[in-house]
Write a protein that binds this DNA or RNA. Structure first.
Lengths: 247, 247
DNA sequence: CCCGCCATACCAAGAAAGGGGGGTATTTTA
DNA sequence: TAAAATACCCCCCTTTCTTGGTATGGCGGG
């Protein structure tokens, strides 16, 4: 297993990549260093735009990817789902300890094995309001993802992500709508399930004023319902679960 | 500089910490391994109101912290600001290359030096919609944060974050309600902002059936509104942002 | 200095949607 | 075989969303 200084050489090269091809090449090298067969990088910029806008790079077997795409999986498979709820990297075979399995998950994993993909690890990375993604490395039959590999991948993951971020146009791309203080306050109460009139009582305002704040917030997010508003604001970090739970 | 296997031992211990004191002790050890003087861990679940709700752990000089708090800094200092817009860890003295300095930043950094803090590095970590945080390590005069230390810290950062997350009650959820397939399907459309009648058209059902599914889902979550339902289901992982974005 | 822009707060009316309550009847599954 | 899950139906009230307004105070550019 590679040492820290190997990781550092990768890091230096990652920060200088100028094309997807170069990035892919580096990831192949990382695979070699860890003794695994495949890598997959997803970097998806905008909640609304879907994954087309980000970077998607991998060397998975074509048939597996075709099946995966045909099924309309994408962010629906257990690995991606788990990566949305974690800060730290994880081994696929330990996923069950922190992510609740869903019906159909086993079928997906079985299908992956059918294509030779037996085990793997994933490093999630998130930047609030900008991009979310992950880097995965996958092993074929006979070998499996080790804690050592996880450590190595963990030290690289964030830099892979930064490289992808640069390739897809950098951080300046999309800043989320800004809400005013009052709009956020109203939104938080709404996210707690309060009606406009109750919010008005709480905030000592007229009901119409509350409606007005939420209306303006919706229009800034181009959201037609308060539920879309809440979820988009949650996704981009304008509000967070802690804010909501607090009330 | 420590090797990857040292990082791994830290990781194993991090995942087992049961108190803030134990976590602090581990971070002191990490400092020793890197040759730095101070660590600072912020894990803010609530980032408008300040860090009271999350975990805040550090061994900075008391006077520095007192000044920092009195100034009402918090997320306003250059390091924290940079950490909100980065996925990868960074050295403080390289911050200028990716984060535009703000008026007052220099004064803050000068003040830190006045308290002995000359250089450092920070590893940001984020989980969309849940928590934002960072781990920093700081060096006193004469030494400085090196790329090697950054690599080491990067490999640990996410696990430190997960440890803090567990301590603040984020990770361990008591078993959440289970929704049926149809309930989840309806909920996802609702979370995308669709009305019951529209959902019914999409799913080829009567409007009442959709309302029924959502009513049952609400009752399982003991939620009075669909917005509470959606947010709680999001929080416990029954649905995730990716699911919602997909539609 | 005035002007526009924005945040804030308030008002009203009507159409659409959500939520609570009561039902019935199949099919699947444990 | 009993319990769920699924699908459908009704009524009634509340809430949300949309579309029109008015008015105040702050802040920066010309």
């Amino acid at each position: 297993m590679p040492k820290l200084d190997a990781a550092q050489r990768f890091k230096a090269e990652l920060l200088n990549v100028s094309s997807k091809a170069a990035l892919a090449e580096l990831l192949v090298e990382a695979c070699a260093a860890m003794g695994c067969s495949w890598f997959a990088l997803t970097h998806h910029i905008d909640f609304l735009a879907g994954p087309e806008k980000g970077v998607r790079l991998h060397n998975y077997p074509e048939e597996w990817v075709r099946w995966f795409d045909e099924q309309g999986l994408g962010v629906n498979d257990p690995v991606h789902r788990a990566s949305q709820r974690r800060a730290a990297g994880f081994l696929w075979h330990e996923m069950g300890t922190f992510s609740r399995p869903r019906r159909g998950d086993r079928a997906i994993l079985a299908r992956a094995r059918h294509h030779g993909i037996y085990d793997g690890l994933t490093i999630p990375t998130h930047i609030p309001g900008e991009a979310h993604g992950s880097v995965s490395f996958a092993w074929s039959r006979g070998s499996s993802a080790t804690p050592e590999a996880l450590m190595f991948a963990q030290s690289l993951g964030a830099f892979v992500f930064e490289a992808a971020r640069q390739l897809s146009g950098g951080g300046a791309a999309n800043d989320p709508p800004r809400l005013t203080d009052r709009q956020i306050e109203c939104l938080l109460w709404a996210a707690r399930g309060k009606s406009d009139s109750v919010i008005a009582q709480i905030m000592n305002l007229r009901t119409d004023t509350v409606s007005e704040h939420l209306r303006n917030a919706r229009s800034r997010y181009d959201a037609r319902s308060r539920i879309s508003l809440a979820i988009r604001a949650l996704f981009d970090g304008t509000i967070c679960f802690g804010d909501i739970a607090k009330g």
